[in-house]
Design a binder for these strands. Structure first.
Length: 213
DNA sequence: CAGTCGATTCACT
DNA sequence: GTGAATCGACTGA
């Protein structure tokens, strides 16, 4: 018999902790997506923590709204938002419930279903770019707002799940400022990535958009 | 109700 | 390195 990898999702208690503890421990974990065409899986290489209503960089900073409602709910669920008129980004809600904290899944290495991911990410120059960036990750895995609120701990039949993976050694885990976050929350080193991994997205400072004419 | 801008990506210079 | 794409959520009047 060939030994099969662990298909049991992360327990909900894993997410029901302060987001700054959870975020770095998500590196190396497996994100699985069951599409109509087949499974797609990736190993997480880059994440960012958003610390709820007290975090100026968080969507939850100005309180509960229709969009961020899921963030205020139980941990272990997917918060998917739509941005720049064309992209989706995927987060995992963390604890404690009501604090509205979450982890943005920014990048990963596609391990299963690269052929499916390539179809969705046809402009990618190499497989390393399939999920290099939060909107690319969501596109590669066919994640949109239909999956907002999905329980990531529900089990193998769920459309989207988080599973244990191969954690990087602690000296490979790096942290730094969050990409594209400006204002008061800009300096916190709440972005975490696996050092040297080619699928990690480049850092960019926040750039205010030029005013419309 | 109109104005502003975004937890981004891509094409092009 | 710079700017366009593109739309819906949020803000403030």
């Amino acid at each position: 018999m060939i030994e099969s990898p662990d298909r049991t999702p992360m327990p909900r208690e894993f997410f029901d902790r302060p987001v700054l503890e959870v975020a770095p421990e998500l590196l190396g974990c497996t994100l699985t997506r069951l599409t109509d065409d087949g499974p797609i899986e990736l190993r997480l290489t880059e994440v960012e923590a958003y610390a709820g209503e007290v975090d100026p960089g968080s969507h939850a900073y100005r309180g509960r709204t229709a969009r961020n409602d899921v963030m205020f709910g139980p941990p272990g669920h997917a918060y998917v938002y739509f941005t720049y008129g064309m992209w989706h980004c995927l987060n995992v809600v963390c604890g404690p419930e009501g604090m509205a904290s979450g982890v943005l899944l920014r990048a990963g290495e596609i391990r299963v279903g690269a052929d499916l991911a390539r179809k969705r990410r046809f402009s990618a120059r190499s497989d390393k770019e399939l999920a290099k960036g939060p909107a690319r990750l969501a596109t590669a895995l066919d994640v949109d707002r239909d999956l907002n609120g999905t329980d990531l701990c529900a089990g193998p039949t769920a459309p989207l799940s988080l599973l244990p993976g191969t954690a990087p050694s602690s000296d490979q885990v790096r942290s730094g400022p969050r990409t594209g976050v400006g204002g008061e929350g800009a300096h916190h080193p709440w972005r975490f990535w696996i050092d040297g991994d080619p699928t990690v997205s480049p850092y960019r400072a926040h750039t205010p958009r030029r005013r419309a004419t």
